[in-house]
Structures are given as structure tokens and as C-alpha cells.
Amino acid sequence: MAKSTSSDVLTLIRSLRSAYAATPTNLKVVYMGIVGSFPFNSFLSGVLSCVGTAVLAVCLRIQVNKENKEFKDLPPERAFADFVLCNLVLHLVIMNFLG
């Protein structure tokens, strides 16, 4: 029971986070549409960071979802560790690219 609650909460947070991560992407594109693409690397890194985070969040959600039999043997903790690691690597690259 506890597990399912925790899983629900986790799922909720992830979905919110995913939505949050995707929102700035749209904002970025709108912003760029308005003011132009001068610091292009900033724009690109901003967009890529959002998209990347969203993709990673989606992956996490796929992996922790019980209905996906594909990942049945994969514990959610392992999925979370993967998520954290991938995020760290992604943001290292983003920071470097941001200039």
C-alpha cells in the first residue's frame, strides 16, 4: 500500500516536473520569436536543457510505470539512479555550452 502511494506521489511529481520542464521550452521559442536569436548558444542550450530534461523525465516515468511489462525486472530505484546520472551529465554539457 505504502509502495503504491509513494509511487503515485512520485508519478505526480514527475508529471508536474515534466510539464514544468516542457513549459520553458515553449516560452523560449516564443521569446526567440519575439526578440531574435542573438545569443544563439544560450537559446539552444536553454531549449536543449528543457527538452532533455523532459525526455529523461518521460523515460523515468516509462520505467517506473507498473503497466509497462517491458521494465518489470528493473527496480524503480535503478531507474531513478539512471535519471539522476543522466541529468547530471546533460546539465554538465548544457552548462559548458551555455557560455
Binding site: 506521489v9 505526480l12 511529481i13 508536474l16 516536473r17 510539464a19 514544468y20 513549459t23 520553458p24 516560452l27 523560449k28 516564443v30 521569446y31 519575439i34 526578440v35 531574435g36 542573438f38 545569443p39
Partner: peptide
């Protein structure tokens, strides 16, 4: 290079922070 007006940039900055605030509010609610 042409830069946008400062107000516009700040408005968008605020907009990018909005989901974060929503997320935190949601978190406190839960």
C-alpha cells in the same frame, strides 16, 4: 547585436519561473 528591451527579458524570466512556483505550490499542497 540587437538586444531586446530589458523589461521584455525580465517578463520572460518571470514566466520561466512560474512553473517552478506552481510546482512548489503543488508540492506543498500534496
Amino acid at each position: 547585436e540587437k538586444r531586446p528591451p530589458k523589461e521584455l527579458s525580465l517578463a520572460f524570466l518571470a514566466l520561466t519561473f512560474l512553473p517552478l512556483i506552481g510546482f512548489i505550490i503543488g508540492l506543498t499542497k500534496l
